[in-house]
Design a protein around this nucleic acid. Structure first.
Lengths: 130, 130
DNA sequence: CTTGCCCCTGACGCACGGGTCAGGGGTTAG
DNA sequence: CTAACCCCTGACCCGTGCGTCAGGGGCAAG
């Protein structure tokens, strides 16, 4: 399987696969004699996992720092990881993302409230703590 | 008042004032004989208004499109603008921002839920509508 | 052999609100 | 007069996840 087909199979683009490889999310794949990347089903599955994690809000750097765990994610059962989130799982980055997400939601919610306040009052006064 | 003092008085930096001027949020100010920008209290007040609106989530482009209204904001009373939000006020951009804000909050909230779901299930399955 | 699609690497673009550096001149107190 | 500080313009930098272009080579079908 060459990069175009692999990308299509994973629901993304060749450019993205090369990018993931460059950033360390994918191991450099086998190459044909002429230098073209050759992918198998395992790599495609890994790309799918990557895409899910990115879609969920993790960053490329988050994934790069846990790249060695990416292959296993589709196969291991949950096995009470929420009880002992060792330093070798995604729990740390996930929880960090969660916290960042909560902070961002709170920020936007506060912003929304301030914006409404500005509408109501004409937006002229200066709140102290801003 | 030269740019440094004006910026300090408005709670920002010289760079930001030049930036606002460049983007059309501020009228080009008077210049001294040697070319240095000269600001009065009115411009400082305008910068304060700009900063409030930016802090509330409007973009520089939003403000640029309504630049001719920026001077009046600190002086006009609300005067039932919420009943007839003519095409000449900030209501359109504010409401657009509000909608964008709501959409973003909803998106992040959904993301948060998905992230939690991934933690709970091990993050292996592929939801249909993603 | 040629056509046409796919692949390769390297490098710039984007959106946002300025920060920061570079190189040169004004301004004011001592 | 000079030091010290401020101002001028122009231009590159940041972070994110790729898109897109440029220039050159591979691979399968007719």
């Amino acid at each position: 399987m060459r990069i175009g087909d692999a990308a299509a199979a994973a629901g993304t683009t060749p450019r993205a696969l090369r990018f993931y490889e460059q950033r360390g999310l994918l191991h450099p794949p086998a190459r044909s004699a002429s230098g073209q990347r050759e992918y198998g089903p395992a790599e495609v599955a890994r790309v799918r996992v990557i895409r899910q994690l990115l879609a969920v809000g993790l960053t490329v750097d988050d994934l790069a720092s846990r790249a060695h765990r990416l292959d296993l994610l589709g196969e291991e059962p949950p096995h009470r990881c929420s009880e002992s989130p060792g330093p070798d799982t995604f729990a740390p980055v996930v929880h960090a993302r969660l916290a960042a997400l909560d902070a961002e939601i709170a920020r936007l919610t506060a912003l929304r409230a301030k914006l409404l306040h500005h509408i109501a009052t004409g937006g002229a006064e200066v709140p102290a703590g801003t």
